[in-house]
Amino acid sequence: MTNAAHRLLWTVVALLLVALGGTVLAVNLGRLPGGAGVLLDAGLRRPFRLAAPWGALALAVVGVLAALAGLWLLRAELGAARGRGYGTLAHPGRRGRTRLAAGALVRALERDLTGDPRIRRAHVVLTGTPPRPDLWIRVEVAAGTRTAGLREHVDSAVRRYADTMGCRPARLDVTAHVDSGPSR
């Protein structure tokens, strides 16, 4: 799940909590009718008993839906944490869409990038459509390295890669993590 999706989810949860808490507080303080009754009164129990066993079955369905929502959320969350994938290239055709896992394609670029000792680790993700794919690069830069010279290395590695692949990236996005340490 993306950061924006998390933010949206928790904004909705917060709004639900505010609405619930505000309504119950208004009833409690007598600003809304019903403050004199009990939480689960006979008016609520009677229809549930009359509808037996359908009321309990409806509750079971609610429980299954909640459990499925939890499972979906868990898979989305764990998949995002684990899934440092390499992306997928997709090409629409006349009879559907061809999808290609980009793992094998990006490893060459990763090797080229880490050929420079200033880059400790590199991770490349390739997405989009083949002639003009999007290239997302994340490099871990060794302590004390000048990033000015590094940009040229990354740019030339990307140029070599594009020439070999016969494509031109529509978007190039590079994020560098710089190690803290003594400057060289």
Partner: peptide, 20 residues
């Protein structure tokens, strides 16, 4: 989100079993 997912999964399963 992980906590919410675990709570929904456990609570939902428990509710379904108890209701059945």
């Amino acid at each position: 989100t992980l906590l919410l997912a675990a709570a929904l999964l456990a609570g939902g399963a428990l509710l379904a079993v108890e209701a059945l």
